[in-house]
Every structure is written in C-alpha cells, then in structure tokens.
C-alpha cells in the first residue's frame, strides 16, 4: 500500500496554507482520512500541504458567541477539554466515540468535518448543536456556514475547493445531551449514530449520522418520521432497512439518555 508520489510542503502559517491550497495543493491535517485514501490510491494529489505544523490552531476557548474549537484540535483534545466537557459535553462525548485512541491522537475536528464522511460521528452532533463552521480562503477571507448547510452530500461540503475549515463554534449547552452509536466493530465507524439535545419536557433536537449521505437534522425529537427515509445508506455492513430500524432504536436511546441529564 504505497501512495502515488507527491510534492510535500509543510504550511508555516494558516495564511501560507490558504495560499498553497489556492494554488491547488491538497490539505493534509491529521491524515486519518486522506492517508488511507492515498494508500488505496483512491486519492492521488500531486501536491500536499501539511497543516500539522501550524501553531495555535488547536485552541478551544469561550466567548459570548459560544465555544470556539480551532480546526486543528484533535479528537483527543475535544474529548478531554474541560471547557467542552462542562460547556458542550455532547461534542466531547461524540469525539470520544471516534475510532480509537491512536486515531483520536492524530485526527482533527477540522479535517473530519471537511472530509464529511457519511459515517463520521461529528456531523450528528454538529447539526444537533446548530454549530457554525468558519471557513476561509485567500480569495474571499472568512465566512460562516451553519452545520446543516455545511454538509451537502457524501464527502461534499459547502466549502469551496480553495477554502479551509478554520474553526467550529458550538453553543454553551442548556439541555441534556447524549450521543448513542451503533458502530461497525472493525472500523469503529457509525452504522448509525444519534446525537440528542433534550429538555426536561422531552422536546428537543436530534442529529443522525450513518443513515443518509449527509447528516439528518430532526428539529422535533417527538417526531421520528424523517428516519423512514427512502434514501438510507446500504452496504455490506448494514442494509438500508436495518439502518432505518437501528436509527429509531438509537434515537430512542439517545433521547432517553439526554432527557435523564436535562
């Protein structure tokens, strides 16, 4: 499993990375998605720009707008951040379900959301949280996209080819939350995963990953009709009918667990 040859440059700053991406280089963050694809030669970029040496873009801090998570924060940093555990526990809990400890040590939240794998964990939490994703380019500067608009289709986001994810902004939580996941046991990817934010009255929002090409947002947790989608994913691990049923099972579990914490 040897990738095609490529030219490599390590970005010295975020501005440098934007410049290189604008010139056609493929951004490499933690590499937990891109490197496997390059090894399988499903991806064969001619130029790779390594974001891993950009200093300071793994911040997690809070202001009036919410909690800001820098794109290079690793899943381990999101999982263990005291600020997130207290202020947005759904994001930390979800991060803790990604892959395994070695993957969480390398993989970054920015890389994961930019990759937009239909079985990734973060998208469920981010649409449930109504998170905002800040993207930037050399050409157009920064703009902010709501999570539900950001995830367009499988492996496709609202970010333009010359844009990089800069940060994710999540709200300070006021509801009970839980992420419940049926995982594919070899890869750890979600067959279905449900992120729930529920109040004491049982009302709230859900984000569902694994079921469709993009995460499904349910704005009224008492109505799970959207989980009967006719466009459910189907693969060797789970047929679409099974996925639909499991989505309902895990939605009910997530709602109950979240409500118990409300």
């Amino acid at each position: 499993m040897i990738p095609h040859s490529f030219d490599y440059a390590a970005a010295t700053s975020f501005a440098d990375a934007l410049e290189q991406v604008a010139a056609g280089a493929k951004p490499l963050s933690g590499g937990m998605s891109l490197i496997p694809m390059m090894k399988l030669r499903l991806a064969a970029p001619e130029r790779v720009v390594d974001l891993g040496r950009i200093q300071g873009l793994n911040y997690i801090h809070q202001d009036q707008a919410g909690i800001h998570v820098g794109a290079l924060a690793t899943h381990f940093e999101v999982e263990t951040s005291a600020l997130l555990r207290a202020g947005c526990p759904l994001l930390s809990e979800t991060a803790g379900w990604i892959g395994d400890v070695q993957i969480r040590n390398r993989g970054t939240i920015g890389g994961s959301v930019a990759h937009a794998d239909p079985s990734a964990d973060y998208p469920a939490a981010l649409v449930a949280l109504d998170a905002r994703i800040v993207v930037a380019s050399k050409r157009g500067g920064e703009r902010t996209v709501g999570a539900n608009d950001f995830f367009v289709d499988a492996l496709t986001t609202a970010a333009e080819p010359d844009e990089l994810v800069k940060e994710i902004i999540v709200p300070v939580e006021t509801m009970g939350t839980s992420y419940q996941k049926l995982l594919q046991p070899a890869s750890g990817f979600a067959i279905v995963g449900v992120a729930a934010r529920i109040g004491q009255d049982g009302h709230g929002r859900l984000g569902v990953t694994g079921l469709g090409a993009r995460p499904i947002l349910i704005t009224d947790a008492t109505d799970l009709a959207a989980l009967n989608t006719t466009e459910a994913n189907s693969d060797i691990h789970a047929a679409s009918a099974y996925r639909r049923e499991m989505a309902k099972v895990y939605a009910r579990r997530a709602i109950a667990a979240a409500r118990a914490r409300a």
Partner: peptide
C-alpha cells in the same frame, strides 16, 4: 489500514499508528 494497531509507536509522547502517517 489503521485498524489493527500492530504498528503503534509514540510521536512526541502520543501513541500513533505509524502505517497511517508519512
């Protein structure tokens, strides 16, 4: 394929899968 962990080493004190890193 970054599943089995047999290639695990430490990079700056963090366990990583060395088959999934350049």
């Amino acid at each position: 394929t970054s599943l089995c962990g047999a290639c695990t080493v430490e990079l700056d004190g963090k366990a990583v899968k060395s088959c999934t890193m350049f």
